[in-house]
């Protein structure tokens, strides 16, 4: 266990000139990143005229800060600010967790096991599914349609037998990532109709389902690559000892992949936290999320930068907290190398 804590970094400190170069680079980029954020913070305390009449930079020095935007959003609107906030938190957390759970398993499966589904079976399944959906759209009872579909599938399957071309893991993985290729604007209306038929419009459930599916491919692909870097030997010896795949996955693989899990979780959290177009269409009154509130600040009189800035700050704070919390796990990548060494 002692080896775990051994640091694998360069034993010698950085030479002075290199340290200067590194710091210069780090500080420069930090400035590039922080200046726009500083501008958002300052703008949230400005009156419209401070924005309109050319730039002012320092509160109390070249302009008198005002809390009007904060007051408007937290006092005047209150529930119209807090409800979307609550929705955003719940939707993003639940959907990212689900995507991580499903996607991690799939990523691992696609790396370690071989799947060889037959092309004919896939096409048959697709055709049956389309038929079932079409039947349900024509208002055939759901259970009857699904039952009929299963029967049809099994019947034709028996007739066709088990032959023909198969597809491999890479094809499955590519199919998954290809689900992100169509821009949301192309699929938003069909998805709207789908959730309308399921009576899920304007619920958090609709957003959670959508975001989980949208983020799954990213989780699968990233986690597959993180798992790739984990040495096989541990798993193999555990398998020889008779551990089940679940046990190996849960007790050996996942702990080793913590940095990847943390990074991936943060990524998909951010994606669902910030998503706009689906949120716009799948919600109306109850389930609206914060990105809608931000976009809404550009109304008939031009963008209301002050309100927008406050909302951006409200939105970004929890994610920063999350990033700080998860950063420690990303840093634990140290453990991986040490355990294997």
């Amino acid at each position: 266990m002692a080896r775990v804590w051994r640091v694998r970094r360069a034993p010698t400190a950085l030479p002075a000139w290199l340290a200067v170069v590194f710091y210069a680079a780090l500080v420069t980029w930090a400035a590039v990143v922080l200046f726009p954020l500083y501008w958002i913070v300052v703008t949230s305390f400005k009156l419209p005229i401070h924005v309109y009449a050319g730039p002012v930079y320092l509160p109390f020095v070249d302009f008198m800060p005002s809390l009007h935007a904060w007051r408007y959003l937290f006092v005047d609107l209150r529930n119209d600010t807090l409800r979307p906030f609550e929705n955003t938190v719940i939707v993003a957390l639940v959907s990212s967790t689900l995507a991580l759970v499903l996607g991690t398993g799939a990523g691992y499966g696609l790396l370690r096991f071989h799947y060889r589904p037959r092309l004919s079976a896939i096409l048959l399944f697709t055709a049956t599914a389309v038929l079932v959906i079409a039947a349900m759209a024509e208002r055939v009872h759901g259970l009857a349609a699904i039952g009929g579909g299963v029967l049809l599938f099994l019947l034709v399957r028996a007739v066709l037998g088990r032959s023909g071309r198969t597809v491999g893991n890479d094809d499955i993985a590519f199919w998954m990532i290809s689900q992100r290729m169509l821009p949301p604007v192309a699929v938003v209306i069909p998805i709207y109709v789908m959730f309308q038929r399921l009576s899920l419009l304007d619920t958090r459930a609709a957003l959670i389902i959508t975001y989980t599916a949208v983020n799954l491919p990213i989780v699968v692909w990233l986690m597959r690559d993180y798992f790739r870097n984990i040495s096989l030997e541990l798993e193999e010896s555990a398998a020889i000892d008779g551990a089940s795949p679940y046990r190996i996955f849960w007790s050996i693989v996942l702990p080793l992949a913590t940095p990847g899990l943390a990074a991936t979780f943060l990524l998909v959290l951010v994606f669902s936290w910030n998503e706009y177009l689906f949120a716009l269409f799948l919600t109306s009154a109850n389930a609206q999320t914060l990105p809608l509130s931000i976009a809404a600040q550009n109304a008939t009189r031009g963008p209301m930068w002050w309100y927008m800035s406050v909302l951006i700050l409200i939105m970004i704070t929890p994610v920063i907290a999350m990033a700080i919390a998860l950063e420690r796990y990303i840093a634990k990548g140290l453990l991986v190398g040490a355990l294997k060494g």
Partner: peptide, 11 residues
């Protein structure tokens, strides 16, 4: 009930 101005028509 309000939605962003730019998307009102479609909505």
């Amino acid at each position: 009930i309000t939605v962003p101005f730019s998307d009102l028509y479609q909505k």
